[in-house]
Design a protein around this nucleic acid. Structure first.
Length: 553
RNA sequence: UGCCCGAUGGUGUAAUGGUAGCACAGCAGACUCUGAAUCUGCUUGUCUAGGUUCGAGUCCUAGUCGGGCAACCA
């Protein structure tokens, strides 16, 4: 494990997994060693749910001076690829974690696993079964009824061994035979009813090529991977809870020096999104989104492109806690963490998303003013802005007939313009046909005049400002649980207004923004220069989050 | 219906037999050259019924509700 990657406070809330690890360390179990692992299958991109596991796995190791392995759990060649391996590594690094030298592929253990399987056969603890998959299901029984023993269950170990070797040699067609553990066909736990350990599958593997036509199943492979690596605490999600007896069975058969133990916690459910890899893949393939890194996706690369800082995601994962209760986390908590991080770090700039023109009739010459870059950070300094005779202001910041408590610009009234004095609306030019406001003519007062106004609005010089494409992102779905109803296609809840593009006018310095640089457009929200599309000549910004707006409600 | 797991304000969580606390959200106010941020205050909670105990959110029993398990996926 390398240096801690963040300096977040050490005082974390307790949870049952931390308690277990703490107790184990205190009791001197496993020589006081703490070794965890994050074991993704490289068949999709990492999302915020995985981030919860990553933060737990790496966080626990960091906290107890142990190490966390990154391991590709690649035992099913049909869906896995190197593209995903690389994306997973990049996302975890971006999140802020480092596995050092401890990067592994389950596929690299295939030979060792195979050898152990042979040993199991010789011990009489596993056998080759010739049942078809239909017959297999028939014999297994159902949860409420015990299963029946396979007619091949008591086959001579030597015969099983011979068949197993011929399975490896490719003598039998896919699915014709499998290797099974000999445990208990009457167990109320289906996973203990002689589970399949190996299947015949002629599928090239992205790492081992066509070396194998035999692949181990998760329940056999995973405990072995953990044991081979000396993992002490194997943390996974709740659906594997019923697999634990099998996990322990495999480990006890191997009897490794370090006995890994599995602990399960609830996966993250986030409101207004879907977390299943299958559904996310579907959104990508059906082009409902621009890709895995679409800023509306709950993927880490999507959130990165949206402008979510990694420390905000880590903070979020810290705050949601670890339990065995399957909850639905409010999106507002994630957004709070994002705003909190950005408020402290993002440079303030002015940008007008939906411009309307103001003409200052009494401004004789351009005027330079100083603007603070970040009121939360003195070291961020200030910049010079130029007030010019023609300005852009937000359409929302002017109303011909304002409702009560409207603090912005209205006919005959005054408003402060950020850092540059006051505007008083004298007259309005409207479009003859539509009545739309075309020009707002104002008189200007310097800051020293201290006009009594309630509001301050932002502005961009019409002659100095530059045009920019701004993408306004919102939640991808319109309901808290898009996949909550099995009868209804989750895609029917897609939010048609989740991505709106506008042509904005922004202050000149924004053209020089670096890709991925974060800003607060004052009074509007947090934005970042798009990682891929932004250039000085054609600036592109993504809305990360709006500012909280009490007035809007 | 067999087995396993779970249930604390609107949401997420803490309290490890001894005063139910924190955060988010919401509401009200203060401050403010961002209707932001910040600060102050407030509303709201132990699934039900029994039992053990001086004392139960916590332990036990039963029930209710929710989730998981019947891929040769992970």
């Amino acid at each position: 494990m390398s240096e801690p990657v963040n300096n977040e406070p050490a005082g974390k809330a307790s949870h049952f997994i931390r308690d277990v690890v703490m107790a184990d360390v205190a009791a001197g179990k496993q020589n006081g060693q703490v070794v965890t692992r994050f074991p993704p299958e490289p068949n999709g991109y990492l999302h915020i749910g995985h981030a919860k596991a990553v933060c737990l796995d790496f966080g626990i190791a960091l906290e107890f001076g142990g190490r966390c392995h990154l391991r590709m759990d690649d035992t099913n060649p049909a869906k896995e690829s190197m593209e995903y391996v690389e994306a997973i590594q990049a996302d975890i690094r971006w999140l802020g974690f480092d596995w050092g030298e401890h990067f592994f592929y389950a596929a690299d253990y295939f030979e060792r696993m195979y050898e152990f399987a042979e040993a199991l056969i010789l011990k009489g603890c596993a056998y080759v079964c010739d049942l078809s998959s239909e017959a297999f299901k028939e014999y297994r029984g159902v949860p409420t009824r015990p299963g029946k023993e396979s007619p091949f269950r008591n086959r001579d170990p030597q015969e099983s061994l011979d068949l197993f070797r011929r399975m490896r040699a490719g003598e039998f067609p896919d699915g014709s035979r499998c290797l099974r553990a000999k445990i208990d066909m009457a167990s109320p736990n289906l996973h203990l009813r002689d589970p399949v350990l190996y299947r015949i599958l002629r599928e090239p593997h992205y790492r081992t090529g066509s070396d194998w036509c035999l692949y181990p199943m998760y329940d056999f492979a995973h405990p072995l991977e953990d044991a081979f690596e000396g993992v002490t605490h194997s943390l996974c999600t709740l659906e594997f809870e019923v697999h634990r007896p099998l996990y322990d069975w495999v480990v006890s058969q191997l009897a490794p020096p370090i006995v890994p133990r599995q602990f399960e916690f609830a996966r993250l459910n986030l409101a207004y999104t879907v977390m299943s890899k299958r559904k996310l893949l579907q959104l990508v393939q059906e082009k409902q989104v621009s890709g895995w890194d679409d800023p509306r996706m709950p993927t880490l690369c999507g959130m990165r492109r949206r402008g979510y800082p990694p420390e905000a995601i880590r903070e979020f994962c810290d705050r949601i806690g670890i339990t065995k209760y399957e909850s639905l986390t409010d999106l507002a908590l994630l957004e709070h963490c994002v705003r909190d991080a950005l408020n402290r770090t993002a440079l303030r700039r002015m940008a007008v998303l939906r411009p309307v023109k103001v003409i200052i009739d009494n401004l004789e010459q351009d005027l330079d003013v100083q603007a603070v870059n970040n009121p939360e950070d003195e070291t961020a300094g200030s910049r010079t802005l130029t007030l010019t005779r023609e300005l852009w202001i937000e359409q929302d910041d002017f109303m011909l007939e304002p409702p009560p408590k409207y603090f912005r610009l209205t006919p005959g009234k005054s408003v402060r313009i950020r850092y540059a004095g006051f505007l008083t609306c004298e007259r309005v030019v409207q479009d003859d046909a539509t009545g739309a406001v075309k020009e707002i003519h104002c008189t200007w007062n310097p800051p020293e005049d201290k006009l009594k106004v309630k509001g301050t609005i932002h502005w961009v010089s019409a002659t100095r400002g530059v045009p920019a494409t701004v993408r306004l992102y919102d939640r991808l779905f319109t309901v808290p649980e898009p996949d909550g109803d099995k009868e209804v296609d989750f895609k029917s809840h897609l939010n048609p207004e989740s991505a709106i593009e506008v042509q904005a006018m922004v202050e000149p310095s924004l053209a020089e923004a670096q890709p991925e640089q974060a800003f607060q457009f004052e009074r509007v929200g947090y934005f970042c220069a798009d990682r891929y599309d932004h250039t000085a000549g054609a600036p592109v910004f993504n809305r990360t989050a709006t500012l909280k707006d009490l007035w809007a409600s």
